[in-house]
Computed example of a mutant assay.
Amino acid sequence: MNLKKIISSNNGLSLIEVLVSLTILGIISIGIMNFFSQAYSFTSSNQNKTNAINVARNAMMYMEKQSFIEIKDEFDRNPSKEISLFICQKQYKMFWEGETVDPSCTPILVNEVEYSVSIHADNTEEDKSYILPITVKVEWTKHKKSNFTELEGVIKSEDIR
């Protein structure tokens, strides 16, 4: 019965009641907006990581198409040597460590983010006569924060392709 009196009452809401309800609504809204902000940040970082993994996969496929013998011989002569991958005239081009990079070449660019690709061989394998384990490392900087991801794989000799 008491609830019926309150509902049918002609009295309006007081200023205090309105301010309290707006304060509660504001606190709930801030929490919800914080959730969406964090979700956007997480989605953006995952997008960059996904792009980097795709760049690494493309680099791995590019390396599989190169001459196994030349790459293996170069890594055998200097196991710590690295290969850097750049875009030159809309194609991948590899530069061995110490080689001068052509000024017309650029790092790989996806969605306005530059990805630097370096490739090195894993020389712990005992028998490397037909396969060469390699690691592709992709680095990028977003919002002054450096990130990287690595992809491991092998390139095979033409003899078993």
Rank of each mutant, 00 (worst) to 15 (best):
E70G: 07
E158L: 09
K49N: 06
K65N: 15
S104F: 09
F36R: 13
H143D: 13
L19R: 04
E158Q: 12
M63Y: 05
F75G: 01
K65R: 14
R161P: 03
V20S: 10
N2I: 13
I155H: 00
I24W: 01
G98N: 01
D76H: 01
E99K: 06
S29E: 05
Q89S: 15
K5M: 10
V18L: 13
T124D: 10
K49C: 01
N34L: 15
E17V: 04
S14T: 14
E17R: 01
M1W: 06
A59S: 15
V113M: 06
Q47S: 08
I28G: 10
D122K: 13
F68W: 05
E158I: 08
T100K: 14
K4I: 13
T135R: 10
Q89K: 15
S14H: 08
N147K: 10
S129K: 15
F68K: 00
H143E: 15
M61E: 10
I155C: 04
A59F: 05
I131P: 03
E97I: 10
H120F: 14
E158V: 11
E114S: 15
Q66K: 09
K65M: 12
Q47I: 07
A56G: 02
K49G: 05
K137Y: 00
M94V: 10
S118R: 13
T100F: 10
N2G: 08
S129T: 14
E70K: 01
G153E: 03
A56S: 01
I87S: 04
V154Y: 13
W96D: 04
N58L: 09
E74Q: 08
S21G: 13
P79S: 03
K4W: 03
M63K: 00
N10H: 12
E112F: 08
R161M: 09
S116H: 11
L13H: 01
K72A: 11
C88L: 14
I160E: 07
I28K: 00
V154P: 00
K81Q: 14
K137N: 11
D127P: 05
K93Y: 03
H143F: 10
V20G: 04
K49Y: 08
I131C: 06
N48M: 09
S104G: 13
M94H: 09
I71P: 00
Y40F: 11
M63T: 00
T100L: 13
G153I: 03
T23C: 14
K65Q: 14
N58H: 07
D159P: 03
K72D: 05
L3Q: 10
I27Q: 05
S118P: 05
V117S: 07
G153A: 01
I71M: 08
I131Y: 08
S116D: 12
I53K: 02
S118F: 11
F35N: 05
N34E: 10
N2T: 09
Q66E: 08
I155Q: 02
H143L: 12
V138T: 12
L109Q: 11
G31V: 04
E125M: 15
T141D: 09
I7C: 02
Y62E: 06
E70L: 05
V113P: 05
I53Q: 04
G98E: 04
